[in-house]
Structure formats: structure tokens, C-alpha cells
Design a protein around this nucleic acid. Structure first.
Lengths: 117, 117
DNA sequence: TCGCTGTGCAATCCTAGGGTTGCACAGCGA
DNA sequence: TCGCTGTGCAACCCTAGGATTGCACAGCGA
């Protein structure tokens, strides 16, 4: 359970930024449902233009949340879970770290209370 | 402290939105380090004004990532891990769901390949 | 070769929200 | 009671980025 220096920092930052946008989460949802889809197809299912979808997909791809392959004249996108999983682990270890610190501080406070000096 | 059917959606949305901002993550870091701190104190450690810090803390508090108590004329903020933990779980289950779907689709594709028509 | 359709590129619009400043108000200490 | 300092409120500024539109270009099918 060592958490390395943190090459993850960038990944986490990108993933959080990508997931912060509701539209992008919706996009991910559709993508995972279809397994694979093009920007044009996705735009048909959402109330936004294809270009807007492309921009979002670009952000998601940069964050490593989706991958793409060019087939003929179309580009097929699909979901990738690694980055998401890594970020999930980062979050839970962060939560654990907070708990540890709070526990330590609490013990400290109680000790001081018993022994005001 | 009951969580009805699916209040999680809102929590996750708020948490992701809150964590997407680098400054807010920094704020959380300082807070967890101190265990407890006021907006004024935190503003001293960051290159932004107290008001900016207050705004961020408000967002974080709305997301359930921090809590606050009023002591005399000052307001002390501290970190809360529940919302963060809940979001971490949401993320990893989402990642798992993606994997399951991809695996299913992959099996499908392979079957179709072995048995064209 | 002639469409037709999926993409890419670029200019533009417009709102959300991060950050600041100024000021009034409230407790704490002398 | 008189400061002094921590907060809260509100008006404002300014940039990031979400969304659109128009157009050029590239493959696929007839």
C-alpha cells in the first residue's frame, strides 16, 4: 500500500476535471452502454451539437477515460477504465489519510484535556 | 442521516465539481494537515484572498467535504471523509461496470467472428 | 465520377465561476 | 468603552471553456 511519489497527480487532475462536467459523464454512460460509438452517433442522443461532443470526447481522451480508433472515415470511441480506477484508488486512500490524521489529532486533544498542565 | 433512494447522484456531482478545482484540493490538503483552521489562516498560506478561500470552503462544505463550527467570532473548518469515500466507491463500481460491459461485448464479437452470418 | 455523409478546423458567442476590493458588523481584550 | 481583528455581504472584473455555426475535406457507395 505504498503510494508512489505521484506520477498520478496529472492523471487525477485530468480525470477529475473531465468528470466534473455532467455532459461528459452522460457521454461516458452512453459510450459504456454501446461499447463503441462515433461522435455523430452520440450527438444524436444528446441535445448538443456534434462539435460539442467532439470537444468533450477530446477532453475525456486526454484524461485517459476513453480511447479511439479510426475505421475508414469514422472515429470510434470506447471507454477505458484504468484512469477511472486509478482515481478511485487515489480518492479512497485520501479519505483514509484524512481519517488517520483526524484520529491522531483527536487523541492529542483528549490527552491535553486530561493533562492540562 | 438517512440517505434516501439515490441522493448519491447529487453528492457525487457536488464532490466531483468541488474536487475539480486545484485550489480547493490544496485547501483540503491544508485543512487535513491542520485538522482544523479558519478561512483567514488558510488565506495566509495561499496566494489568494480570504474571500476567495471562503467561497471555496462554501463549495466544499456544500459537497460535504468539510464541516464548520463557529467558535466565538471565528469559524473553524475541518475535513470530512464520508462524501469523499462515497464518491470513491461510486467511481470504482463504475469502473467495474465498464469492465463487465466490455467483457460481454468482447465475447459477443468473438462469437460473431467464429460464426459469421 | 458524382454525390452523400462523417470529420476536422476555426471563428464567435456567452455564461459560470474564480478572484478582488470595499465596507459594515460582531466579538474579544484592555 | 475603545480599538482590533475575523466575518459576512455585495458589486465587479475577467478568463476559461461549453456550445454553435459555417466551411473545407475525405472516404464510401452507386
Amino acid at each position: 500500500m505504498v503510494d508512489s511519489p505521484r506520477p498520478d497527480a496529472d492523471v487525477v487532475d485530468a480525470v477529475l476535471n473531465a468528470l466534473a462536467e455532467p455532459t461528459r459523464r452522460q457521454l461516458l454512460d452512453r459510450l459504456s452502454a454501446h461499447g463503441q460509438a462515433t461522435a455523430t452517433t452520440l450527438a444524436d442522443e444528446l441535445p448538443i451539437s456534434r462539435q460539442a461532443v467532439v470537444k468533450h470526447l477530446t477532453v475525456l481522451e486526454t484524461a485517459g477515460l476513453v480511447g479511439s480508433v479510426k475505421v475508414g472515415r469514422e472515429v470510434r470511441y470506447s471507454v477505458r477504465s484504468e484512469a477511472l480506477d486509478a482515481t478511485a484508488r487515489w480518492m479512497s486512500s485520501l479519505a483514509a489519510a484524512w481519517d488517520r490524521r483526524l484520529a491522531k489529532i483527536k487523541r492529542f486533544a483528549e490527552a491535553a484535556e486530561r493533562d492540562p498542565k
